[in-house]
Amino acid sequence: MKKERWDNLGSKFAHLTSAHPCYNEKAHFTTARIHLPVAPRCNIQCNYCIRKLDKCEHRPGVAGSILNPREALVRLDKYAKEMQNLKVVGIAGPGESLANEDSFETMRLVHEKYPGLIKCVASNGLMLSERVDDLVKAGVTSVTVTINAVDPEVGAKIYSFVRYHDKTYKGVEGAKLLIEKQFEGIKKASEAGLNVKVNTVLIPEINFSQIKEIAKKAAENGAIIMNIIPMIPLNKFEKERPPDCDELNIARTIAEEFLPQFRLCRQCRADAVGVPGAEPCGSPVQQRATSEYYHA
């Protein structure tokens, strides 16, 4: 069954997955991508996340500066000339892509000038079902949704708040709303023809028991691949321990019953550019976690 799932992934979305370094392990070492940091605002607060403008720190939620759509296109122009193997343009924050209108304008401009490049966005999924049509119109073909729980009681331990249509929800209420919208969004995105990847941040003492259900429900709603990434201890979770190599392996094995697993994630900055597999890691925590990924 596992081989069949990989075969299905390769056939249905081959034109995208074969070239995308976050979907295909061979492309991970040969294909360049660029993240355009045009999305500073976020509509949820994860307890492991700190958004930051920083030139040196290598992790999600970090960018050297925030660009407007025209500036982002200029940045893409520069690297498109320099990198013949640049095939993917993504928006991965440093906040929530779909909570920033500049994300849609940026992708529209990119698609207009570079229709052959793969366009993707990373999202927490809260607004996905409402913005799928806008993504399709902007030329986006791939979306990554970070889902960390299916049980609202567990989600309440991971998210400080959820801000939806100008109202703030906390605790179980906020987590329940977010989880419902995430799977609703995955289903609608898949039905619209987008290929959907699910990211899950593994926090051993909190959501390890959720891995199987996340993978199962994501697959049922149309996701095609999953990426389990180690939590980097920050913010309210600065004293939580990241998963070790064995825990990552076990989690991926459990989830692989339902979805193919991508195992080489570098946990990139929001302004990353280049071939992921050729980049050094940043912080000691990230170095350790990524080393475990590559040698697991």
Rank of each mutant, 00 (worst) to 15 (best):
L194V: 09
I186R: 00
Q182A: 01
G171P: 07
S190N: 09
R163P: 01
F161A: 03
R163V: 04
D151G: 02
I186C: 00
E180D: 11
D166Q: 13
A175C: 06
V198N: 02
E180F: 09
E180Q: 11
G174M: 06
N195M: 15
E180T: 12
S190D: 01
E173W: 07
F183K: 00
D166S: 15
A156C: 04
Y164F: 15
P152C: 06
A192E: 07
N199H: 14
S190T: 10
K167R: 15
I158A: 04
E173T: 13
R163W: 13
K157L: 14
N199C: 10
K187L: 11
V162N: 09
N199S: 10
A189E: 12
D166I: 05
K188A: 10
K188C: 04
H165Q: 13
I186M: 02
E191M: 10
V154M: 03
N195F: 15
I158V: 10
E173Y: 05
Y164W: 13
N199M: 11
S190V: 06
K188G: 08
S190L: 08
K187Q: 12
S160N: 07
G185I: 05
L177A: 07
G155V: 08
K197N: 13
E153K: 14
A156Q: 01
E191W: 07
A156N: 04
E173F: 07
V154H: 03
E173P: 06
A189Q: 10
Y169Q: 02
G155I: 08
G171C: 11
S160D: 14
A189D: 09
Y164L: 10
G185R: 08
G174S: 05
L178Q: 06
A189F: 14
L177G: 03
